[in-house]
Computed example of a mutant assay.
Amino acid sequence: MVKIAIAGGSGNVALEVIDALVATKKHEILLLSRKNVPAVDARPGVTWVKTSYQDPKELMEILQGVHTVLSFIVTQSDPSNVSQKNLINAAIEAGVKRFAPSEWATSSFEHLTWYAGKAEIREYLKELNKDKKVLEYSLFLPGLFTNYFTYPYESAMHFRPFQTQIDFNKRRALTLDGGDDDRITLTTAQDLANVVARAVEYEGEWPVVGGIKGTELSVGQLLALGEKVRGEPFHIERLKADDLKVGLAKCSWLPTVDHPGIPREQAEALAPVLLAGMLLGTSAGVLKVTDEWNRLLPDYQFTQAEEFLTEAWRDKP
């Protein structure tokens, strides 16, 4: 049993991880929140503490006795990464053994400008350990959550999918012209949560790059899987890279991110930018991740995309 502190614990990915940790019935879990601490939390072994993340001394006191810190701070909502850097520094001062920064996504960030904050934290942690290791950390990288492709239906307890450029629901897709061979890693939110729960108990040293590979397939294979699962051909529009690079999305529809942290007007305005970033980024390999945690946890059986999506879409219109 160890004490685990979770920053940004009200997010949907964080809640999946919290439930997996609680299910082990092994750990003491401390949730850090900017919001008022709820009077009651039904999860056993879970306590809350309110913090602004702005006072390093307060954070250091909060983290006393903590073994592992998992950060789910939304980097887009953390200007200059002040909150997460304060959390990292406080973890070091408090003697925390392990730290997971707010990653939970892709292997790299080429064309994904909205992930600039994650890239900065990677460099910050690397610099801290440059001369000697002061903090053990791992970048948990699941690629793209398979659950996105069940939109608009929910396929996890907490994770809420939103529409992507491959829309299983309306049997349509926006792809990069010539990009059918581009590779993608798909991992369910449930598998990510279970891997993190096992990683907390892992007795060896955490790998800095912590790839988690559920299923790897090409864009073309994902389209074929969609058509198989949905029982009909998809309407596919193929976009030119040169157009996307100058901000032109020449297509009949745009996926819009439905996220509580992004106002609808802002999400609609960002839609062409997000689409271009995802298509160009996929071509650059950002959604293909490595398998470090698969190799360190060889007994864990990952849910394959075909199995998961076939079941998710069974009997759906």
Rank of each mutant, 00 (worst) to 15 (best):
I6K: 07
I6R: 12
I6P: 08
A7W: 09
A7N: 08
G11P: 09
N12S: 13
A14T: 04
L15Q: 12
E16V: 12
E16I: 07
A20F: 06
L21C: 03
V22K: 00
T24C: 05
K25I: 00
H27F: 11
E28S: 10
I29A: 11
I29L: 15
I29Q: 08
S33A: 04
V37T: 09
A39E: 15
A42R: 12
R43M: 07
P44M: 03
T47R: 04
W48G: 00
T51G: 04
Y53R: 11
Q54C: 14
Q54E: 14
P56Q: 14
P56Y: 12
E58T: 12
Q64V: 09
V66K: 10
S71C: 12
Q76I: 14
P79D: 06
S83P: 05
K85H: 03
K85W: 03
L87S: 09
I88T: 11
A91G: 08
G95P: 08
F99N: 12
A105D: 11
F109P: 00
E110W: 11
T113I: 12
W114Q: 14
W114L: 13
G117P: 10
E120L: 14
K133N: 10
K133G: 06
L139W: 15
P142V: 03
F145Q: 02
Y148D: 00
Y148G: 00
F149M: 03
F149D: 00
F149E: 04
T150Y: 06
Y151N: 02
Y151L: 01
E154M: 12
M157E: 15
R160L: 04
Q163D: 11
T164H: 02
T164Q: 05
D167E: 06
N169W: 08
L174I: 07
D181V: 14
D182T: 13
D182K: 05
Q190A: 15
L192V: 13
L192G: 13
N194S: 08
V196H: 07
V200H: 02
E205P: 00
P207G: 03
V208W: 01
E216S: 15
L217M: 15
S218E: 04
A224K: 11
L225Y: 11
L225A: 14
G226D: 06
E227C: 08
V229Q: 05
E232V: 13
P233T: 01
P233I: 02
P233H: 00
P233M: 02
P233A: 03
K240H: 00
K240E: 00
A241I: 01
D243G: 04
V246H: 14
G247P: 07
L248N: 13
L248M: 14
A249L: 03
A249M: 02
K250N: 11
P255V: 12
P260L: 03
P260R: 02
E265F: 15
Q266E: 15
Q266F: 14
A267P: 09
A267Y: 11
P272Q: 09
P272T: 10
P272I: 07
L275P: 09
A276K: 03
G277W: 01
L280P: 02
L280E: 04
G281N: 01
S283C: 03
L287E: 07
D291M: 02
D291A: 13
E292D: 09
W293D: 11
N294I: 01
N294D: 03
Y300D: 00
F302T: 04
F308Y: 14
R314F: 08
